[in-house]
């Protein structure tokens, strides 16, 4: 029987890959699809498949190899056709996404882009001669945040929480599941109004404005919206009980979090750091922690795979 990951990848990712690579990925053993996290294409370099802790390549016959010298080399034609596919042959329609460095595919998968950036004034004007693509496979791990819920939805009410970890430890997946649980009313709990401010279209994986991933029935999504502006917009017009946003780090994000908390809205967010100590040293979070903006801190790692809960700290 074909497993769910295999079906999803074959249907939602493979059609966008270079024609020469499509049959190779389709022919992979089904067990490999569960571990597949990223597919990286770089011009004149072998294709790279990120499968959890190991990175492998595919040779001309479609066999997985650890030795990258034997991998299938992505040529310029492959890159041109893949960029055309992911942008639906409509650069103009994805202009803003390309400027931000990624395109979201149906299913919520994200394709990161790298190439020659044209700088106009103080911002990215366009990106041309795209030479690298990173397909990140969106995976929902429904229920992965259930063990955290009692720390966030307590007898005293909802607690503002900050998820802390280095990259690729499952912050976004856990945040999405928390939003789903809170907005869906887990167990006998009442559903809350949740607003997701999804600057990088990763949390809800919106395609055409519609969330492709389950974020709960009482969730509004501000897609591709800068975090600070989005939090203020949500506060003014969407009457949220909880705002969920990924990777706060700039001063204006911290100020917006403070505004939300002053307005009685709880914030659940994440931050790139390897430890709580590091978090306390960063200017943006230092101030928030001093103001007791977050009541719960959750430290994640990859010790037992992505999403391992390393430590839960009460900060109130």
């Amino acid at each position: 029987m074909t497993n769910e990951s295999a079906l999803k990848i074959r249907k939602e990712i493979v059609p966008y890959l270079p024609p020469a690579l499509q049959s190779k990925i389709n022919a992979l053993d089904e067990g490999h699809y569960d571990a597949l996290e990223e597919i990286r294409l770089r011009v004149n370099q072998p294709v790279a498949l990120n499968m959890g802790k190991r990175e492998v390549t595919l040779d001309d016959k479609g066999v997985l190899r650890e030795d990258f010298k034997r991998g299938y080399i992505i040529n310029k034609e492959d890159m041109k056709r893949t960029v055309a596919s992911v942008s639906e042959n409509s650069y103009y329609a994805y202009e803003e996404d390309i400027k931000r460095g990624f395109i979201t595919l149906p299913g919520g998968h994200r394709v990161g882009l790298a190439g020659q950036v044209v700088w106009r004034g103080n911002e990215v004007g366009m990106m041309k001669n795209i030479s690298s693509l990173c397909f990140r496979i969106a995976r929902e791990k429904k229920g992965c945040a259930e063990s955290l819920l009692p720390h966030i939805e307590t007898e005293e009410g909802i607690m503002s929480a900050l998820l802390v970890s280095p990259p690729r430890c499952g912050k976004t997946t856990i945040l999405r599941d928390l939003a789903r649980l809170l907005a869906g009313g887990a167990g006998d709990k009442k559903a809350k109004n949740v607003v997701i401010v999804d600057e990088r279209s990763e949390l809800a994986g919106c395609y055409g404005g519609v969330p492709q991933l389950d974020v709960g029935g009482h969730t509004d999504v501000l897609d591709a919206c800068p975090k600070a502006a989005g939090m203020m917009m949500a506060l003014r017009s969407l009457a949220p009980q909880i705002i969920v946003t990924d990777e706060i780090g700039r001063d204006e994000d911290a100020a917006a979090v403070q505004e939300c908390l002053n307005a009685g809205v709880k914030v659940i967010s994440s931050f790139h750091a390897a430890s709580f100590e590091e978090l306390k040293r960063r200017p943006a979070t230092k101030r928030l922690l001093a103001a007791e903006a977050f009541q719960v801190g959750i430290l994640l790692s990859r010790r037992n795979g992505p999403g391992t809960i390393q430590e839960i700290a009460g900060w109130d």
Partner: peptide
Amino acid sequence: LREKSGITAGEA
């Protein structure tokens, strides 16, 4: 274009 067979806009 809808076939998604790696075709470019120019070819379509």
